[in-house]
Nucleic acid binder design. Structure first.
Lengths: 254, 254
DNA sequence: CGATAAATTGAGTTTTGTCAATAAAGGTGG
DNA sequence: CCACCTTTATTGACAAAACTCAATTTATCG
């Protein structure tokens, strides 16, 4: 591999501005969990809720502005979280003060599992845009029915982590970016949104921190993808032109 | 980052020979779980055992020769596993047929959590030397007491994964190797073995596959560490000379 | 409309991978 | 028990990918 990114001053995002919205975006209405659609993935059936006190555990939806923290590394582990609308990024700060993004979460995704009762949160979570979240207090987790559900959620998270490891260890910049974009497309599609025209809710810096690449490399690679007629990208607006070829790059490149 | 490793023919290990043993090694006696020491970390109290049928669930210790598979990707998820003696490596095979090592497990470590009832094992596990393992059938997991324990084990696994992500994304070859060696030292020490003189149970290839580096880079870096009087290394025999400096490299390098 | 931040682009450097050859160990079979 | 063969590890020369630094452009926000 080539030179590693050095300690830079501008690696930590500022979480300042909400992104503009001139392209297809995720803006479903925030709905109370008790009413939401069982097929959508974001609801009591997916969750580990003790139905003996559904009101207390589920009425915790709330809207959060862009750039606000849901929790921080070291915080007490008192709730799991589901994205209802918007998007969230999870990250850790490494020893040298760099931000390592661990994942991006879209509506329906559960996050906050990487925590322990002993040491609290092992990562921080921050919204990338105005979002609504559903908090599920750990205390409300139903211990009767928990095993299967918890294992399932956990294995999803582990699978994501393993995918990231695989990308970082085995793919070059092209492969990582292609993988990243294809994954986004797939996830949006699975949620019923357009899979060919999406709005990136994260900055180039975020993407770089996620994929272990310098911002410049991210930018250059996206430009090159566009020149090769694989995508059209202008700032945060992304259009897939040749998804199939992109998938080939994502899979083949290593 | 520099050039990515390409598809090579010799990346998959053969799992053939047991390592030689001229240096301090881990060779504790295999003990029936029902008798083992509660402080050691490898026992029913750490595990999620339904004590109503302890015999069935715990009498599954068995010795495994070097290079044998404990399970393979896609296998049914029917048991968790604890290392009693020896060592185990976990890996996935990427699209291009490369082996990505996800972790190494030492005595007391629990592995096999990265599985789901739906899709089975998401990684394979193979012994690096003759080892004894304790299998814990999923069916025997006690649903009453499971939540805390399972979350704890899970969070440990997630933490390991996150550490690996951090290494891969943010550290150069020196930092990765230093981190890897320091981590080994720490883990051996935590288990009551010498932390200054250990025997590497994994090959250079395994290390490279774990850290996302070419074998040659692993070899060169170890040689350079030795020239800098940080370690003494001859084949699998490793001696720490200046652990502190190594930790500095592990932490600082990015 | 100006200021700040994000994104892009260019030139040059460094790290690490690739290819190839050699050496050292360990296991196997006669 | 020794010789051979296979596997693992080491070392050198070269090439390529990605990073760094620096400057510029484009957005967005106040």
């Amino acid at each position: 591999m080539p030179a590693m990114p050095n300690i830079k001053q501008e690696t930590l995002s500022r979480h300042t501005r909400p992104p503009y919205s001139n392209v297809a975006r995720l803006t479903p209405q925030a709905v109370n969990c008790q009413v939401c659609d069982p097929a959508g993935g974001c609801l009591s059936k997916q969750l580990l809720v003790n139905h003996q006190q559904p009101d207390r555990s589920l009425k915790t939806n709330r809207s959060i502005k862009a750039g606000e923290h849901v929790f921080r590394e070291g915080d007490e582990f008192d709730f799991l979280c589901v994205v209802r609308s918007g998007s969230v990024k999870s990250y850790m700060v490494s020893d040298d003060g760099e931000e390592q993004v661990l994942g991006f979460y879209l509506p329906g995704d559960v996050f906050g599992l990487d925590s322990s009762n002993d040491h609290g949160r092992m990562s921080s979570a921050v919204t990338l845009e105005t979002s609504t979240l559903c908090r599920l207090p750990v205390a409300c987790i139903d211990s009767q029915n928990v095993t299967d559900q918890l294992l399932r959620l956990t294995s999803t998270q582990l699978q994501r982590d393993h995918n990231l490891v695989l990308m970082l260890a085995r793919k070059d910049a092209d492969g990582r970016l292609a993988s990243f974009l294809c994954d986004l497309s797939r996830r949006y599609q699975a949620r019923g949104y357009s899979s060919l025209e999406i709005n990136l809710s994260m900055s180039r810096q975020d993407i770089g921190n996620y994929l272990g690449l310098a911002v410049e490399t991210v930018s250059r690679t996206l430009t090159r993808f566009q020149e090769s007629s694989l995508i059209n990208v202008r700032r945060r607006a992304l259009e897939f032109v040749d998804l199939q070829s992109l998938q080939v790059i994502a899979g083949a490149q290593a």
